[in-house]
Design a binder for these strands. Structure first.
Lengths: 219, 219
DNA sequence: CGGCGCGTAAGGTTTTTCCTCACAATGGCG
DNA sequence: CGCCATTGTGAGGAAAAACCTTACGCGCCG
């Protein structure tokens, strides 16, 4: 990082915890703690003043918690990476945190070694996660794959029909689809008719439902 | 697991690799290799015959690769958990694999210890992932949160307009929306008109794009 | 050979959309 | 205090799209 050491700011509303973190990180020669704060607001002002590489921040704090602070930091386009600490493995917070822009997620019971690794990883631009967190994430993704029924039905459609289904779900009209597929809008109409029969649906909203369940609308 | 040991089937098209895996797993007293195969098809027939707890399978194989075999196993409601091995950290395959139903993902360069841990984890019902894999997953999620622009625009719409936007994106027609909101279809028309102006869009497909980017269509 | 599935398409009726206009309530703002 | 922008509501009418029915060639399978 800039001039060698990884510049870290610690934010936690318990001084004892901060002291502990400082002690642990102090054992790594390539990590330097350059500031401390006790609220999310502190995190933001410290980020602006000190321009750290990494902000190690508690998830739950009195005034402005870690999640909100992370969002705000991202909004302000701060360069610092955020490593969130949490008391217990509260998996449910993980996804919102990642969406907010956090780069890492660590329970406080983690070994010293893990903390140091995590700081290095996020300073390096990587995303750091413990297995329990990764698991939550993976399960979330797997849940998406549960619509086997719809998949089966979908696969019974001909290629043309599948294609048309996708386009309709995406909001395109028959003439527009016709243009894209180089066929007459009337032909598109026919496909829609056949899709309706085969899937037993009738409304455009059903197309959207279907496509959503099958992940056909993922960018 | 049943009668103590974790029953494992190895599937890889290189005998040498299978031998290696067997040697490594042999060092764990709680793991027993009960079968071997060299293709995805083998994986499926072995799963049916031997009913293993875990299938350790290569990602790339000649006939039917690991991903397809996993899908098929899930389709057949096999009880075995699938741990996918891969030559390099091909992150791009991870998400499809998880969707297919794999419970773990490991590069072949992993330490012996990691392989054993991974087998135990998936046998136990956990999802096992290495940091590099977890990273890919996390980045994928973060990408979803990048549409700040759209969010801002969306928030400039009135509540009514936001509501109508959602319904339109979901595929509902003006009369249908009118019914849901207890207003005239003509009023819905007006909202659509105003949304078009405010967002600078004109097609239903733009509504869908917009809603997708903001996650308004997530079940 | 006669269906059957599939890709293609047209005609005609019914709905929807799209655009323009309208009006009342509300809430600043000079 | 009037004025004007914003918001919720709605109508009328032309244009477009959806919907339903019918049709035809082609390859395939019993």
């Amino acid at each position: 990082m800039r001039d060698g050491a990884i510049r870290v700011v610690l934010v936690d509303d318990h001084a004892v915890v901060r002291a502990g973190l400082k002690a642990v990180l102090g054992t790594a020669k390539d990590i330097e703690v350059i500031g401390e704060g006790s609220t999310g607001k502190d995190a933001i002002s410290l980020a602006e003043r000190l321009n750290p590489d990494v902000i190690v921040m508690d998830l739950s704090m009195g005034e402005m918690d870690g999640a909100e602070a992370t969002k705000e930091l991202v909004r302000k386009k701060a360069l610092a990476k955020v490593l969130i600490l949490t008391m217990h493995a509260e998996d449910s917070y993980l996804v919102p945190l990642l969406e907010a822009g956090a780069s890492g997620y660590l329970v406080k019971s983690a070994a010293d070694r893990e903390l140091i690794d995590a700081v290095r990883a996020v300073a390096h631009g990587d995303v750091y996660m413990q297995p329990s967190a990764a698991r939550a994430l993976a399960q979330r993704i797997q849940r998406r794959a549960e619509h086997a029924d719809e998949r089966t039905k979908f696969e019974k459609l001909t290629e043309r029909e599948q294609n048309v289904l996708k386009f309709v779900a995406r909001g395109y009209s028959a003439p527009e689809i016709g243009e894209k597929l180089f066929i007459s809008p009337k032909t598109v109409d026919t496909y829609k008719q056949r899709i309706n029969e085969k899937l037993g649906i009738a409304h455009r909203s059903d197309y959207v439902d279907f496509a959503l369940k099958l992940g056909l609308l993922a960018e």
